[in-house]
Nucleic acid binder design. Sequence first.
DNA 1: CCCCGATTAGAGCGATCTCTCTAGAGAGAC
DNA 2: GTCTCTCTAGAGAGATCGCTCTAATCGGGG
Lengths: 195, 195
Amino acid sequence: MGSMGTEERIVLAMAELMRAQGYAATGVNQLTRAANAPMGSLYHHFKGGKREIAAAALRQTGAVYIQLLPLLLDPHEDLAAGIEAAFAAAAADMRDTGWANMCPVGTVAGEVADAEPRLREAAAEVMTHWVDEASAYLTGRGLSGADARDTAFALLSALEGAFVMARTLRSTEPLLAAGRAVAARVAALRAAREL
Amino acid sequence: MGSMGTEERIVLAMAELMRAQGYAATGVNQLTRAANAPMGSLYHHFKGGKREIAAAALRQTGAVYIQLLPLLLDPHEDLAAGIEAAFAAAAADMRDTGWANMCPVGTVAGEVADAEPRLREAAAEVMTHWVDEASAYLTGRGLSGADARDTAFALLSALEGAFVMARTLRSTEPLLAAGRAVAARVAALRAAREL
DNA sequence: CCCCGATTAGAGCGATCTCTCTAGAGAGAC
DNA sequence: GTCTCTCTAGAGAGATCGCTCTAATCGGGG
C-alpha cells in the first residue's frame, strides 16, 4: 500500500474497518492507525470528518463491487444457470475467506438508515447505481426493461440479505438458496415471454 | 408501558434503539433514559452489561418476528401468491411507517458478525429459529423437507436484504421484486413435483 | 537562496463512553 | 420493631470519542 496517496489510503482503510465492524464502532483514532495517516492529514483531506470519509468509502467500494456482476455472469450462456452459479461462487468465496463480506455497503446501510441522513444518501446513491448497472446488463442479456429492473432489485436484495445470513450463520445455505430463487424468477420471466 | 417490569422495559427499549441506530451507536445512558430505568437497575438485572442486554433484545424481538409468517400466509390458498402478497404487505407497511424496519436483528447482525462473537451467536440462534419455524410452516403447506428448508433460506434472505434496500432507497420496489422471486421459486418447486 | 501553499504531525479539548460503587428505599419474615 | 434481601438511584472513575489547533516539514517557482 506504500505507493498510493494518503487520501486513498484513508478511504480504503475506512471501507475495510466499516466492513468488519460498521460505522459507529469505527473511531478516527483507529482509522489513523489503519491508514498510517496522522490526524491532521485526515481532517485536511476530509473537512467533513468521519462522516465524509465514510461516505467516500461507501461510494468508492460500491462502485467497484458491481463490476463483479458481468465478470461472474458472462461465462454462462444460460442466464438463470449463471445467476445460480454466481451465488454459489460467492458462497464458496465467503466460506474460504472466513465469512467476511467483501462490501461494507450492506453492513453500514442498515445501521445508518434512520440516524445518519448523509450516509443514507451515499448508500442510496450506491444502490441506485447498482440497480442501473444490473438492469443494463440484464437488458443486454435479453430481458425487457421492466423485467430487467425487477430482476436487478430481486438479485441485489437476495444477495445482500443472504450475505448477512451467511456471515451470521457461518453457512453457505442462504446464498445457495437465494441464488436458486433469483434464477427461478429469471426462468419464469423467460418462460412467460416465450408463450 | 407503565405496567411492565424494569427488566422487560430495558430489553424492549434496547431493541427499539438498535433497530433505529444499531448496536455500537446505542449508549447505556441513552438506554436508561429510553427505558426510564436507572443505571443501577440496568447492571443489577444484566451483569453482562450492554452486550447481554443486546443479546436478550435480539432473542426476544426475533422470536416475535417470525410469528408474523403464518399470520401473513395463512389467508392465501396459493402459497406462491401468498408470499408475493406478504412481501407487498410488508412494503406497504414500511412505506406507511416512515421506512422503519420492525426488527433489529438484520440491522445488528451485519454490524457485529466479525467483532462481537456473543452477539453474533445470539443473532445466529434467532436466525436458526426462523429457518426452523419457516421450514415447518412450509412443510405444512405441502413442500418436501428439503424444499421447505431451501425456500425458508431464500425467503428470509430476500426479506432481510430487501428491507435494507427499501429503507435505504425509501422505495417499495426491492420488497416487491424480492417477493416475486421467492414466489417464482415456490412455483417452480411445485411444477417440478407435479411432473 | 527565500518564500509559500500544501501536507504532515500529534498534543490536547470538551464531551461522551461503559461500567463500578455506595447509599438507601421497599417488602416480607419473625 | 429489626433483620435481610432485592432492587433503585445516580454520582463518578477511567478510558475513549470526534475534532481543533499550532508547529513542523516538504517541494517547487522566483
